[in-house]
Amino acid sequence: MFYCRVVGESQERLTTHTIDFPYTRTLGPVFSEFLTGMRDGKLVGIKGRDGKVICPPTEWDPETGDALGNDFVEVGPGGVVTTWAWVTEPTPKHPLDKPFAFALIQLDGADTGLMHAVDAGSIDKMSTGMRVTARWKDDRIGHITDVTFVPEAG
């Protein structure tokens, strides 16, 4: 029968294996509007059946499942942090390469939270209920990382 040792620090032979897939995704009408907005420096939500504004926008009503029209609404650029987490050691996949906060941000004019990064500098600058605002990259391509958020001045 098999005998499995737990391998310690001085493991005998570590092999490396990489998977590497370049995906190109089509966006459909709703994400196209959202990411075109990103490129143009605008945050875009969509109106749900009950009139609530959803951001990031969905193609369907989260409550009823009905298809939504093209009732897009510009939201932000400011918003309120409804919850947050302080990332001490960012991974190479994170949008910032220094400690930052992931937060759910309810953008002005929206009724749902957008998960995004807040570049606050230190954990002391973060609190639930604080206001943040969009900080746009100069070179935008229509991607969720065209924007990050920073604490609102004042």
Partner: peptide, 29 residues
């Protein structure tokens, strides 16, 4: 940037590139 949008900087964004790259380190059994 997706090729389809490279031509016109004002055209709607219709595609999104994501380069998935993950590395695994496994002990040889």
């Amino acid at each position: 940037m997706a090729e389809s949008q490279a031509a016109d900087l004002n055209a709607p964004v219709v595609g999104m590139d994501y380069h998935m790259h993950v590395q695994y380190h496994e002990v040889l059994c």
